[in-house]
């Protein structure tokens, strides 16, 4: 067989290599170095972390390619970058500069309120957010090779990430326990492609790697998400909006590895300094919620 690139196996495969790890938002090459030294498995290169995007308001777009390239130069680990939902030209640009993964992200202002990107036509793999199993299945149907919960980015409040992880994993448990004749109707009710539902049912998990994201701010938050059953964790504002980013980053990495060991979790949680100033999701006006972007 000749060499084949950009197969779904290699797209999904990179996400498999990130399992049990922490992907950190960084806005400068220096941040990226701190993240790599702390044990991050990948970095997400962006101009502003979600907490600042929230505070700043206005339209949030793909970052300057120059910044992303500088971050790619600074570290040896994979570099991800975000494009707007439906903005396939931003995705083409990110592919052209060679990022390792694209996050078609609700954190940026959507460019299309009806259609997500057709991700199958890209060589670079995509990760997408979801709030429930139907949304995860639709994104995988469009070609996403990795899924994450949406959570509520930039809040430091883990409640939405928990809700979304419980929703996805709970629906998979329900799917596994239903008789065959109910599966089609279930697929219809959550607007999911039937073949992917069958695959998920037989695997007992999503057919791609599934991370938590959106509101993780402490080692305990990260371990909570791991114990709920995700494969790894994205930390956005939680690290570089905290008092001691290097220390907190290293502690979250250790917490994800030893997520089942409360003694190690207690040890790594000590003396981390100030966490990011959080914002309770229930206090945010509905129009400002990010997770409702996309469908």
């Amino acid at each position: 067989m000749e060499q084949q690139i950009a197969t779904f196996a290699v797209k999904k495969g990179l996400a498999q290599m990130l399992k049990g790890g922490v992907i950190m938002d960084v806005v400068t090459p220096d941040h990226a170095k701190i993240a790599e030294d702390a044990g991050a498995v990948a970095v997400m290169a962006l101009e502003r972390v979600p907490a600042d995007i929230r505070a700043h308001g206005g339209v949030a777009r793909m970052s300057d390619p120059e910044l992303i390239l500088q971050i790619m130069d600074a570290v040896s680990i994979p570099v991800m970058a975000k494009c707007r939902i439906g903005h396939f030209v931003e995705a083409q640009i990110l592919e052209a500069i060679g990022v390792d993964y694209i996050d078609e992200s609700e954190v940026l202002t959507p460019a299309d309120e009806e259609h997500h990107i057709n991700k199958h036509v890209f060589k670079v793999p995509f990760v997408c957010g979801c709030r429930n199993l139907g949304e995860a299945m639709r994104r995988i149907g469009e070609g996403a090779a990795m899924i994450r919960t949406k959570g509520e980015a930039g809040t430091g409040d883990v409640v939405e990430a928990v809700r979304h992880a419980r929703s996805v994993l709970g629906e998979i448990r329900r799917l596994q326990n239903m008789p065959d004749e109910e599966v089609m109707s279930f697929a219809k009710s959550i607007a999911a492609p039937y073949e992917l539902i069958l695959e998920t049912r037989s695997l007992g998990r999503l057919p791609v790697v599934n991370f938590a994201a959106g509101g993780v701010a402490t080692p305990a938050d990260a371990a909570l998400m791991m114990q709920l059953g995700v494969d790894g964790v994205f930390v956005g504002s939680g690290i570089f909006k905290s008092g001691d980013p290097a220390k907190r980053a290293a502690a979250i990495v250790k917490a994800v590895t030893h997520y089942k060991d409360p003694y190690i979790l207690a040890e790594v949680s000590r003396n981390l300094g100030e966490p990011m100033v959080g914002r309770q999701v229930s206090s945010i006006p509905e129009a400002e919620l990010i997770a409702d972007r996309g469908w």
Binding site: M1, I5, T7, V10
Partner: peptide
């Protein structure tokens, strides 16, 4: 040699 074939876009399968 790490990342000897380049970035993710160059990842491949072969016999």
């Amino acid at each position: 040699e790490r990342n000897a074939f380049g970035r993710q876009i160059a990842s491949f399968e072969i016999d």
